[in-house]
């Protein structure tokens, strides 16, 4: 994974960058599965590896595919990054060890989700329960974000054409994304 990341820094062909990014996402998805986050892994694989890569390729089709020149190595950027990274590492030192079941994170709110969500909400998948019910409002916000981005892309790229079907807010986010992609595909074919 790290290899792909560092590869990304060096490679100039943007097609390769986009593909490599897809690989990066897939690896991340694998990691999620290992860490018991199956739902997240699905989403990452579909959204991160899938849609994002498609978006990037689409953009590349519209712009140029080769990065031109590298400026001189940016020392300031390096310094900022190193300081930030060092800060983060420093912060991790006091963290509870990975996978420790007694860490505070697992003892407070999460207990209730796991213990009672079956009774209180219903679905056996706790993630779904939390997403849809306990933190349903976040999901509404998330939908709003997607809506914002969709309208934003429409404004920026829709050249005077208002052709897009209305979507109802209660639709699944997945549908929205599909719509967005349709929109973009449509634009691409026009060009």
């Amino acid at each position: 994974m790290a290899v792909t990341a560092f590869g990304l820094i060096r490679i100039r062909n943007l097609f390769a960058v986009a593909m490599l990014f897809g690989v990066f996402s897939l690896v991340a998805a694998l990691l999620y599965v290992i860490m018991d986050a199956v739902d997240v892994a699905f989403t990452e694989a579909a959204v991160g590896a899938g849609i994002t890569t498609v978006l990037m390729l689409g953009t590349l089709a519209l712009t140029s595919s080769v990065e031109k020149t590298h400026g001189p190595r940016n020392l300031l950027a390096m310094a900022v990054v190193l300081v930030t990274g060092a800060g983060l590492i420093y912060g991790t030192l006091d963290m509870p060890a990975y996978g420790d079941p007694d860490a505070p994170i697992h003892r407070h709110v999460a207990d209730r989700y796991i213990g009672k969500s079956g009774a209180e909400v219903g679905p056996p998948n706790v993630v779904t329960s939390v997403l849809a019910s306990y933190r349903g409002y976040d999901t509404l916000g998330e939908v709003t974000v997607i809506f914002t981005a969709a309208v934003g892309v429409l404004i920026l790229l829709g050249r005077g054409r208002g052709r897009h079907t209305r979507r109802r807010p209660e639709d699944e986010p997945e549908l929205w994304r599909g719509d967005e992609r349709r929109l973009r595909d449509h634009r691409e074919t026009e060009l």
Partner: peptide, 15 residues
Amino acid sequence: NLFVFLEVSSLSTYV
């Protein structure tokens, strides 16, 4: 939740 709304406002601001 604050983060989510932060993004709502930010994305719309960019546009």
